[in-house]
């Protein structure tokens, strides 16, 4: 069980890394995807993401995400590829629509980058406890606790709201709103009014969460209140170096 972004417990090498290092690694993977010009490098990065997910025991989730991302990116690719007009024409269709080599290359890179850059952040968030994350943001990076808490709470609420939205869709389908229509534009039009109940519920839940946090001493918290410590170990240093190396490889990849 466990939905998108829910914490997936474990004790793998990646789980044990310092939360800061996990975030740093995933950010550097994103960066390297964007600075490289090589599609092969991007493919390698996507492959690396999958290997990392497998080592942390969340392969099924990673593959599910990959599948969704590929669907989305295929859609983007198809839109994009017809809009780029310069370069050598590879083949043409009626109505002055044609596809060029540059268009294919550009759209392909865009799709690869999107996949390569989206996966690592989501994966890292799945194997990091939100408390650990906010603790290091406060303790190591010196972020004020209020911001760190808001950030992690926002992330924590994503699955809550996803479930709420699913419940709302269910209730509306049951009363006869035709969400099961095949027409995508009609469907979007139907979903729009549902923002009202979602908003109301969200406001109520957030208000409740705020009161609960207040009652549990949220306002008393100081920078060094965290109980757990997050030392940097050799493995952490190694991963930081690896992350830099990855970004450098992205910048200077020869292909």
């Amino acid at each position: 069980m466990g939905g998108f972004l829910d914490y997936s417990p474990g004790n793998s090498f990646l789980h044990r890394l310092n939360p800061i290092v996990k975030i740093f690694l995933s950010l550097m993977i994103c960066v390297s995807c964007f600075i490289t010009d090589s599609p092969f490098f991007c493919i390698a990065i996507i492959f690396l993401n999958i290997v990392m997910a497998a080592s942390a025991g969340i392969l099924p989730r990673a593959l599910a995400m990959l599948r969704t991302l590929i669907k989305f990116c295929t859609f983007l690719f198809l839109i994009q590829v017809f809009f780029i007009r310069d370069g050598t024409v590879l083949f043409s269709l009626p109505f002055d629509i044609y596809v060029t080599d540059k268009g294919v290359m550009f759209s392909l890179m865009m799709a690869f980058r999107l996949v390569g850059a989206t996966l690592p952040l989501a994966l890292m968030l799945s194997i990091t406890k939100m408390n650990d994350l906010s603790n290091v943001l406060v303790g190591t990076l010196g972020m004020p606790y209020k911001y760190a808490f808001s950030l992690t709470t926002a992330i924590r609420f994503i699955p809550v709201f996803t479930a709420e939205m699913a419940g709302i869709m269910e209730a509306q389908t049951a009363r006869g709103v035709a969400f099961d229509t095949k027409n995508i534009f009609r469907k979007i039009g139907l979903i729009f009014p549902l923002c009202v109940p979602l908003l109301i519920t969200s406001v109520r839940k957030i208000e409740g969460a705020a009161i609960s946090a207040e009652l549990r001493g949220f306002n008393c918290r100081k920078r060094d209140s965290g109980y757990k410590s997050y030392p940097f170990r050799a493995a952490d240093i190694g991963i930081i170096l690896f992350a830099f190396a990855l970004a450098a490889a992205g910048a200077f990849s020869p292909f």
Binding site: Y7, K129, M130, N131, R156, K205, G208, A209, A213
Partner: peptide
């Protein structure tokens, strides 16, 4: 509503 007052995953 204990669901929304939880602050942690563990």
């Amino acid at each position: 509503d204990f669901e929304s007052q939880m602050v942690s995953s563990v």
